[in-house]
Amino acid sequence: MMFTAAMTLLLLLAGLLQSLFPPLVWLGQAKAPVLMALATYYAIAHGRVAMLCVAVVAGLFQDSLSSLPMGFSTVCLSALGLAIQSQRGMWFYETTGTAVMLGFAGGALMTLAIYLLLLSGQEYAPAPAGWVAAKAFGAGFLGALITPAVWMLAAWMERRLDLRGKAEGKTLYGGA
């Protein structure tokens, strides 16, 4: 129960923060991918069920906050979460370095994936390739900055609520 409440609170906070962060005008209007950072945290620190729950809800949040068709972000976040979980313990560990790397890769790849989905659905006029590249880089850059902070905050909250032992995570971010 407390785990669900904490997850809901983190999702609300991430959605609000993402809507408030100003975009990087010089890098394709890229916005800080706070919801993506939270999804990667649940992918690295918790089981598949929790990760998919967060991916579905975070995706709905992201699409509702923008004009993206419903489901685009859910697909991307779920795929990202599954990819991270498949390599967890082999390539990805709950460390700051991994957070930076996943934040960068996740932000950039999600931007490119959403752009391709937008183009495939004819919802969006094709943008200049340079702009898309700048936007992907900007999202990756902001993801690399924001993801360690989101991981730290989420881990701190779960430790304070004594949820880490009960959850499926195997490692502790930021020390026990």
Binding site: S19, G28, K31, S64, L65, K135
Partner: peptide
């Protein structure tokens, strides 16, 4: 709020 959640549109 300025801009949409993903920065795809100017809104």
């Amino acid at each position: 709020a300025r801009d949409d959640g993903g920065g795809w549109w100017q809104s």
